[in-house]
Design a protein around this nucleic acid. Structure first.
Lengths: 351, 351
DNA sequence: CTGAAAGCGCTTACAG
DNA sequence: CTGAAAGCGCTTACAG
């Protein structure tokens, strides 16, 4: 593979001059520029990004550690992140934690070793020492979706509280009184917050959330399956199951179907995170939609602000309820399939 | 951030010795090793992967260029690739082409500039000059899922021919005679092969595949929507639509639902690529399942073989039909939700 | 077993 | 405008 030396030799200039034309440094004679460009062309030369990174101490790369690639929500987030990063001149390397703290740490370490310019992470737990150390050491970092309390890092996320209130009102209006939740890990913010918000939303209706109706999941499908089976085995099973993410909702559907039961007649189902397939399930699933694309964009902008020395603020965008048929009688006209994910307006809150 | 020099100073040895203990070189005295390890520990030192890569001319990184991250098939493939690569000591950087040749080239170039040790690609078109040049220049490369004819690069893919024959038999058995296909881009192998296999499978039944029943899609949801609308507008619409991937099947469902029609009564639907949601759609979708995990694993092994100087063979694994209810009366007992993706035995064919 | 030195491919003050 | 030189953080023959 041709190096800068080869180009310099072919163009009859020094490597310094080659480097200057490659970096559009102004002081290069038109003649030299022309000859360098010709040499670059004929040799098919491409600067070695590894060498450049070593020298400039920047990789123009962002690390993104997501909780689970198989979760369409994170997949959409990752796509949005890459898109925005590319537009701003950065590449992104994705690490999939698969909801495992050890795998998360593996990727954080790997990304740090590769000297990414900054880290976007949606933590799978309450805070690995490694990540805390990185944050303290000044590694540019931004949390997306989930965050770690007490760490001074901007957070870009969606607030589901209002949407969960809307969901509970919807459920109550349909006559449901025994409501259960499949929670994510308590060590994650989204895991504990969604339970808290659910409980708070139930209070005005004088509905309690007994322990038996809080199933401990891990945001993956298997746990949704397992927890739902437990609910169905109860002497008094819940009338509604609210899955704290779409994969656990998938697991719940599996469990319900395996027993030969039907949604919503035998048991109703709602989920956090809306995905295109929810329009086509039997029945269509009532879900809380996040402005995923916007979250990805905002997270990248915040991280790059941080990298480039500015001071980003945290961003919180609202989520909203999309009522379909999985909790009872069709409550609204059929959703247009063209816009299963209507974006809401954006809200910013100071960090 | 501490460098190897800091460690050497702290341990009272030369950087060469530090490097040796870091790379477990045998000739280091126990004493030196102990002191170096202590210094590494206390400084929280981590070798700079960028510098190491520059020096050793290897990054221990694989590039994976997939056609579309939003497609669960590719997402599952990517996960399997990363898993296997990690097990073999490699990292992977994913580039999402979003079915766009220009984006694909952007990522290939980016990955090459970063000096990945090898490239795994599922090409979105018939062959970008860039990729052909890279292959010719000797960049270790392996095609997954889709490939480019005439390029001497191993291919790891699934052969859907037999499964498509099974599908057609299934459809014919249910009484369907007017069969249409939503094809992928003709410039992709999976785009053209699936049409060819479908046509061949129809021949024994004396069923033709008229142009009006071949809709040109691009493997993304919108195109499935558009093509299906076209089919439904026909004077004689097809009785069955076979979508060449799961996203176009999603689009087809959108279009069918938007017209207030029902599957399979008004029109039947089948798809290439099985995904967990197909079990829960209304009705469950008959699909052709690929051994996705195995494909990812085999692709990584082939690429690493190539990188490490061995000579990998192409691998072709069989796909298989999973008949559900979207083409007519339930043809078999309900699938167990525990195993929506049963793996078939593995077949290897010489390259 | 150990260290001094060269060198990977770049960029960038510095001097001219 | 241009080039020689230093240096980024490593690894690895080479000599001892």
């Amino acid at each position: 593979m041709a190096s800068i030396k080869d180009v310099a030799a072919a163009a009859g200039v020094s490597v310094a001059t080659v480097s200057r034309v490659l970096n559009s440094h102004p002081s290069v004679s038109p003649d030299a520029r022309t000859r360098v460009l010709a040499a670059v062309e004929s040799l098919g030369y491409r600067p070695n990004a590894v060498a450049r990174s070593l020298r400039t101490d920047q990789t123009r790369t962002l690390g993104l550690v997501i909780s689970d690639v198989l979760n369409p929500y994170f997949t959409e987030l990752a796509r949005s992140v890459e898109e925005e990063a590319r537009a701003l001149g950065y590449s992104v390397i994705i690490g999939n934690a698969d909801e495992r703290p050890d795998l998360q740490d593996h990727h954080v370490q790997n990304l740090l070793d590769r000297r990414v310019d900054g880290l976007l992470v949606s933590p799978t737990d309450g805070g690995s020492p490694l990540m805390l150390a990185a944050a303290r050491a000044g590694t540019p970092m931004v949390f997306v979706d989930r965050w770690i309390p007490g760490v001074d890092v901007p957070v870009v996320r969606s607030d589901g509280r209002a949407a969960i209130r809307d969901l509970v009102a919807h459920l109550h209006g349909l006559g449901h009184r025994r409501l259960a939740i499949i929670a994510g890990p308590a060590a994650t913010t989204t895991g504990s917050e969604r339970v808290a918000a659910f409980r708070e939303a139930l209070a005005p209706y004088d509905i309690a959330l007994p322990d038996a109706y809080i199933g401990q999941g891990d945001f993956q499908a298997d746990s949704g399956r397992r927890v739902t089976e437990g609910f169905l085995d109860l002497a008094e099973p819940p009338e509604v199951v609210f899955a704290a993410d779409n994969l656990m909702a998938l697991g719940a559907l599996d469990a319900i179907r395996a027993r030969g039961l039907r949604v919503p007649d035998d048991i109703a189902l709602a989920a956090f995170d809306d995905i295109p397939w929810f329009v086509h399930t039997a029945p269509p699933v009532t879900a809380i939609a996040q402005p995923t694309k916007e979250l990805g964009r905002a997270a990248v902008r915040a991280l790059i602000d941080r990298i480039e020395g500015r001071t980003p603020e945290s961003v919180t965008l609202p989520a909203h309820l999309v009522a379909r048929e999985s909790c009872g009688e069709s409550p609204q006209p059929r959703q247009s399939p063209q816009s299963p994910h209507p974006l809401t307006s954006m809200e910013r809150s100071p960090r």
